[in-house]
Amino acid sequence: MKEKEIKQLIRSSPDDGYRQLFEQYHAYALAVIYRTLSGKVSSKEAEDCVVDVFADVIMHCDTSSDGNIQAYIGAAARNRAITLKRAKAASEWYTVPEEAAGDVPDCGTDVEKAAENSETLRLVLAKIDELDEPDPTIIIQKYFFGRSSAEIADIVGMSPAAVRVRLSRALKRLRTVLEELGVTL
């Protein structure tokens, strides 16, 4: 459903509209949270952040205007993640360097490097997507979001042991391709 349609649904049936908004953007919010925290966040913490983000959106985002809800959700998710990051900064559980306690990723200082990383990431994702499901999901959850086999099992509807086996086989197929791109797992 497009953003405009979700806004219309919110106007006509707020409960259904907000539920649809959550359906459509919860994963995006989670992805922003994981990126902001460099993936070093527990599933529970990330999900708590998502609850905060959507409560914020429902209570504060003016969905009747032409504003971009995705941008608002992205900003809200990032802000909530930064708050969590600040709390974690001192702990170094997740190696938040001193300069990063609450800042946005500094990806603009080296444009060339940022572009190179972006291009590499695009190629990596393309290679991952070439695998048969649920392997791409398992790899993304494991390496992008740091989830455990048990958590991934819950998402893909398999046993943790089966997830580990699938992951191992998928990585074997992927490893050679990634190495050619200069990427290690």
């Binding site: 990126r35 893909v156 990427v183 290690t184």
Partner: peptide, 28 residues
């Protein structure tokens, strides 16, 4: 220029994140 896959996500822009999020279920 070896990179770690898990580190590359730090360079993901919002549209890339949207793509990942749309393509892969994040929650049961």
């Amino acid at each position: 220029n070896e990179k770690k896959l898990s580190e590359l996500i730090g360079s993901a822009d919002n549209e890339t994140l949207r793509k990942i999020a749309d393509s892969h279920p994040m929650l049961s």
